[in-house]
Amino acid sequence: MRTGVTANLLATDPSSAAKTVAAPFGQALVAAAEREPRIVGLTADLGKYTDMHVFAQRFPQRFFQIGMAEQNLVGIAAGLARAGWIPFASTYCVFATRRAYDFIAIGCALGQANVKIIAGLPGLTTGYGGTHQGIEDLALMRSIPNLVVIDPCDATEIAQVIPMIAAYRGPVYMRLLRGQAPVTLDPASYRFELGKAKLLRDGADAAIISAGLMTGRALDTAQQLAEDGIHAAVLHVSTLKPFDREAVLALARRVKKIVTAENHVVTGGLAGAVADTVADAGISIRLKRVGIPDCFCESGSLPCLQQRYGLDTENIVLAAKRLVES
C-alpha cells in the first residue's frame, strides 16, 4: 500500500500525470457572466477554495460573501433567484448537501428556483476524512425532484457545463473539480449536452459506464483492457439527473456486462441509476459496481485512499476482467 501524508492541495487529481487547467469553473463563470449580466456569485467562506474568487475579482459588485453559513448561502441564493438573478453558490459537497439539504429541496427545487449550486471536493478528492469527503451527495441530490445533477469529469467539460446551466432555467447541483483540474476530454471534439450521456469509446466485450472523475480512469482502463484483447466501451454520464436512460439501455442491450465507476458510494448514485434503468426495462445484465463501499472513508493521502477504497484504475481493470471472464 502506498503511504503519504494528508495534503491540502488546490488540485483535483494529483495522481494523474495528465495535462491540467487552472480553475476552469472560475474562468467559465467569468466568461458566462461577461455575456449574461444577471449572473451573480456567492460563497460560504470558500471562495479561494472553490475557484469562486476568480469571479469575485472580476465582478466584485455581483459577488456576495456569505461567511461560513451554508443554509443561509442556499437560502439567499434562492431569494436572489426569486428576485430575477442567476445565482451560482459555492461550497463543498458535504456542506451543501448535508447541512443545507432542506434549503435545497424546498428553497430551490420545489418551486424550481433558478439556483446553481457548485459543490467542491466530491467523493475522494480530499484526504480529510468523513467530515469533508462528499461520498453520498449524488444519492442525496438525485432523490430531490426537479433538481438537475451533474458530475463533470474534467476541465473541458466544466468549461462547457457552466454556460449551459447558466442558460438553463431551474435548479442545478454541479460537482466541482477545483484548482488544477485534469483535462481528459478534447475540447475540439467533445460537446456536453444537458441530460445526454456520451459514448467516448466503443467495444463489444464489456461496457464501463462512468461519471465524474472516474471517466478518466475508465478510459485508461479501456486502453489497458484493449492491450489484453478485451474491447470495452466507455459511456460517460455526467448528467446524473435527468438520467439518459436511452443511452444506457442501448448499451445494455448489446453489451451484457457492465461495470459502473463512480467517485461516490455504490448505493444511490450512478450504479443505482443504471440498475434502476435496466431493471425497469426488464433487461438482464451482469453489473459490477466500482465505487466507495458502504463506509465512511479514513483520512490520508489521496493515492493511498483511492487505492484502499478501490477507485484506482487498477481496480477498475480488475473488476472488468473478472466480469468478462465470468
Binding site: G4, R99, Y128, G129, T131, H132
Partner: peptide, 25 residues
C-alpha cells in the same frame, strides 16, 4: 497527518481525548 495515523489533520472522535468529531464546523 500520515496515512494510517490516529492523528488526522482534521481530528475525530477516534483519537483518544476527543469527545466528538469536529471539523464540519
Amino acid at each position: 497527518g500520515a496515512d494510517g495515523s490516529r492523528l488526522e489533520m482534521s481530528g475525530s472522535e477516534f483519537t483518544p481525548g476527543f469527545e466528538m468529531t469536529g471539523g464540519s464546523l
